[in-house]
Structure formats: C-alpha cells, structure tokens
C-alpha cells in the first residue's frame, strides 16, 4: 500500500471509531435548519424563498464546527510530526486527510439536505439542484478550511480565530451555491452557477493542499 492509502485507511478507521464526532455535526445541521421554520412561522412563500440560503448557511457553520478536529488530534498525539517526516509529499497527505474529513463530516450533510429541504416546501427540481450544489461546494469548504485549521494549530482560542479566517473565504461558495437554486427557480437554469462552483472546486484542489502543508510545517517548528 502507498503512504497515502495508509493515511486514508487510518483516518477512515478513526472516523468509524469516533462516531460521535460525525453525529454531532449532522445533528447540529439538522437542528439548526429545523429551527428556522419554527422561528419565522409557516408562511409557504417565505420559507420557499429562504430555504436554500438557510440550508447553505447551516452547512457552512456545521463545517466550521468540525474543522478544529482536522489536524488537532494529530498535533496533540505526535502523529503530525511523523507525517511531516514520512517520505511522501505533505500536500498529498493533507489532501487525503481533507478527503476523509469531507466524507465523514460533510457528505452526511449533503445526503440529509434534500430531506430537510422538504420542510421549506422546495420542489423536487430545486432539491436536486440544492443537493448538486452542496456536492460541488462542500469539498471547497473542507479544502479552504484545511488552511485555516493548519494556521491556527496549537493556538488557544483557535476555534474562534479559524471562523474569522475562513468564513469570509466561504462567501463565494455560499453565493453561487444558494444562487444555483434561485436561478433554477427563476427559469435561468442552474448550469452557470454549478459550473462556477466546479471551477472553485478545481482551484481549491490545486491550491489549498500546498498552502495547508506549508502552514503545518510552520506551526510545528
């Protein structure tokens, strides 16, 4: 097995043994989204209009919740040191870790989102577009978040700092993600928005692992 395969195997095993971490993020997402209809009242037009935005903002915040765990445990128990010393590019290892992080904490949100969208009276078409936009957009959240998580590693109060660093960078993803559903509803078609999300994903895949790897080296020095 290659080194990257070992990283994937280890992180997937850990995610399976730390189920509570995965469930915390998912329940936060479910509860946060479900509170909105209770708070603003059962006005169908209003709910329909704000549904996509609420789901996207909730996904953003839920992903912030799990970011701290991306490297913190490895930093605390010394495995991060070992990963820096292993004869494989650190950027590739970061990419593997981010991929598992996405599978464990974001993919469940993507799968749950259409179900929650029903609470807002979204049509079948809109639910498809919403799921697709989340599928393209949430990996960007994990990748960009990895930079924030590695920059704030080992700092006290790093959780707050990481939100301040990362949330502004999430804005384009939020705009195009929630916008895709609106564009679809208004008859423009979601193609443009989804293509832009795809472009953001490619850009993030290319740029962020190297940046996060550099930040990790600095924070371990």
């Amino acid at each position: 097995m290659t080194i990257v395969m070992w990283v994937l195997k280890r992180d997937l095993l850990l995610a399976m043994r730390r189920k509570s971490d995965v469930l915390t993020t998912l329940f936060f997402f479910v509860i946060m989204v479900s509170l909105f209809p209770l708070g603003v009242g059962p006005e169908p037009q209003l709910l329909k209009a704000m549904g996509p935005g609420v789901l996207w903002v909730a996904a953003l915040l839920a992903s912030m919740l799990s970011l701290g765990r991306l490297f913190a445990a490895d930093h605390g128990d010394g495995t991060l040191e070992q990963m820096l010393l292993c004869p494989e590019s650190l950027a590739l290892i970061v990419l593997a870790k981010t991929a598992v992080h996405w599978i464990a904490s974001e993919l469940p949100l993507v799968l749950m989102a259409p179900l929650l969208g029903l609470q807002f009276g979204l049509s079948g078409d809109a639910l498809w577009v919403l799921a697709l936009s989340l599928l393209l957009g949430t990996p960007v959240l994990s990748l960009v978040g990895a930079i924030g998580a590695s920059l704030t590693l080992g700092l006290r109060g790093g959780g707050v700092l990481v939100s301040l660093l990362v949330l502004p960078l999430y804005i384009p993803v939020l705009i195009f993600g929630a916008g895709a559903v609106d564009a679809n509803a208004s008859g423009l078609g979601a193609g443009g928005h989804l293509s832009l999300l795809g472009a953001l994903l490619v850009l993030a895949l290319l740029a962020t692992p190297k940046a996060a790897a550099a930040a990790l080296r600095i924070s371990l020095e």
Binding site: M1, I3, V7, A73, D77, E81, Q82
Partner: peptide, 28 residues
Amino acid sequence: LTYLGHLNGIKEELSGVENLRINCGLAG
C-alpha cells in the same frame, strides 16, 4: 530515518497492531 519523539504518535482508538502497521506504513 526513524524518529520517535516524546509524544507517542499512536492513536488511542486503534489497537496496538493497527497502530504499529499504520505507523510503519506512513514511514513507507
């Protein structure tokens, strides 16, 4: 190089044999 620091570099949730094999795998 094999470096063992003052931190153990092992995962509490994994068994001894898993830890050993994974750490060796990470070292190539």
